[in-house]
Amino acid sequence: MRVSLLAILALAAVTAGCPSVEDPDDINPNEVITAVNLTFTPTAGAAVTASWSDPEGDGDPVIDSFTLANGTAYALTVEFLNELADPVEDITEEIQDEQDEHQILIYGSGVSGPAAGANANARVEHEYGDVDSNNLPIGLESTITGISAGTGDFKLMLRHMPPGSDGTPVKSATIAEDFATGGSAGIGGSVDIDITFPLQVQ
């Protein structure tokens, strides 16, 4: 009997193993985004770029402000990076790959548009410039037009809306409008990105 007890013990000890603890994994494969780069390209002239970056991923970000020209239309492209990976990983492609589950919402005190609603104090106007396979906006490409000189907040949310087990899509045609009226709580999915840039239009 003692022998079999020992056997049970030994077996248990083997199956449990000893996890290696002395070498903490820094970041393992995961959906980590640490930086968002915005590129505003006017039809003529130099592009304006702005970056929001929290390279340590610990809530200590570096945030660029940017200045757009009143009356000018810019093509906005958005890029998402994981700077904790080495080399730096571009997440934009993966979002492009899952465009039916993602949508970028541009809102804030300085914005009017689908996700911001009507806004008397808006400095810029936002318009979606791309659609997914269901003909719904994504927002990786947009048009931003300066409409009034002044300052305001330019906010960007990346909404992730994977369908549930039942397969019903969560992303719908009215996501931006619902967000404008009901806020984040009023739409499905989860927040991957929600950042604020200080905006100036002159």
């Binding site: 449990a16 494969p29 995961n30 959906e31 997440i91 790959d97 899952e98 992730h160 994977p162 989860s190």
Partner: peptide
Amino acid sequence: LQRDLRDEFDQVLAAINGPQ
């Protein structure tokens, strides 16, 4: 002897299989 394994899976990009 106890071994406790807890994996928590969030809604993430399809390219990610493992737990968060």
